[in-house]
């Protein structure tokens, strides 16, 4: 039976849809660089019209992800992200520490199974194309990352901290609980960061995305996730990252900057202030003590997300953010 053309598929499944380009129907997704706008991916009996490659914007530069396709599912009209197989390993620098990171389709497929139906995580399914490539079909999270949410706020920190932070902290604590639960299932997120925690427009829920990073096993396999949670907490409490240069630029007096010691900065990211009470003295001591667990000065390091949660939960109650 001849393959139905892209034009015929669109006419049958999305009548009236204006196709910018009619490409080819792709069953073997191995050559992902050749898959472009207007092609249709045929996966698990469904058809995904490719719009474009996804891009990641980090630290002011744009990084195209040729193996991640933004698509339209022709059967339903829903937007979807299709992640094709790209096995790579690369050195990952986390602050002062380097490790080797692996992009693992199998790991992400497994995590998608584990979190199915749990709105705290992105949803999707994995399937194999005709060549056996493990492709992941992800439901689009319509929202904004925590990073961009906070970056878009134009208000003094004291106002932010009083009016917005308590609720953000409560919801972030819920997101931490989600990661603790994932760990209890024997899985790790792998890339916990403020660009991978999104606030959904429709529900205002925080949802974790992107689970494909994997690492060699270590004595504490969940340490990277825990460190990522600490970074986000410091970021949220501070309404951004505070480096010496940034603080100087924002007009903090030199006399205050002179009081900052290396021990006040993040253990992992030595240029980011963790002891935020030094520049924002209204930060409750109980919260600042948690931040200090992620500072270079800390003698007691968290070993699990549960330990972090045990400290965070009373702070959320104290600040009146409500428990979510």
């Amino acid at each position: 039976m001849p393959k139905e053309s892209v034009a015929a598929l669109v006419a049958r499944l999305r009548p009236g849809y204006r196709l910018a380009r009619a490409g080819r129907v792709v069953d073997d997704t191995g050559q992902f660089m050749d898959i472009i706008q207007g092609d249709v991916l045929r996966l698990a009996g469904r058809h995904y019209l490719v719009f474009k490659d996804a891009v990641e914007r980090r630290f002011g530069y744009t990084d195209p992800k040729f193996w991640v396709k933004k698509c339209l599912e022709l059967e339903t009209g829903a937007r979807a992200i299709v992640k094709l197989v790209f096995q790579e390993s690369f050195p990952l620098r986390v602050g002062t520490v380097s490790t080797t990171c692996f992009r693992s389709p199998a790991k992400e497929a497994r995590v998608l199974d584990v979190v199915r139906g749990d709105a705290r995580f992105m949803q999707g399914f994995a399937t194999r194309d005709t060549a056996g490539n493990l492709v992941r079909v992800i439901e689009t999270v319509s929202g904004v990352s925590i990073e961009n949410t906070v970056a878009a706020l134009d208000m003094p920190h004291a106002d932010y901290f009083r009016d917005l932070f308590p609720n953000l902290l409560a919801r972030f604590t819920g997101a931490c609980r989600a990661i603790a639960w994932l760990h209890s299932q024997g899985e790790l997120h792998g890339d916990v960061g403020r660009d991978h925690l999104w606030i959904e427009h429709k529900t205002a829920a925080m949802r974790w995305i992107d689970f494909d990073y994997a690492y060699e096993a270590y004595e504490n396999p969940f340490g990277m996730d825990l460190s990522g949670l600490g970074d986000i907490l410091v970021f949220l409490a501070g309404q951004g990252v505070h480096t010496i240069a940034g603080m100087r630029e924002s007009g903090l007096p030199e006399s205050l900057l002179d009081t900052l010691a290396p021990d006040d900065f993040s253990l992992v990211h030595g240029n980011r202030l963790a002891n935020l009470a030094k520049i924002s003295p209204y930060i409750p001591e109980r919260l600042n003590r948690i931040l200090l667990h992620f500072a270079a000065a800390s003698d007691v390091l968290y070993e699990s997300v549960d330990e972090l949660l045990a400290d965070l939960t009373p702070v959320v109650q104290e600040m009146g953010g409500g428990l979510i």
Partner: peptide
């Protein structure tokens, strides 16, 4: 290992 490495990856001897 450094303290940062111990935090991120753990340390058998410390544990």
């Amino acid at each position: 290992v450094s303290k940062a490495e111990e935090f991120l990856f753990g340390s058998v001897s410390s544990k």
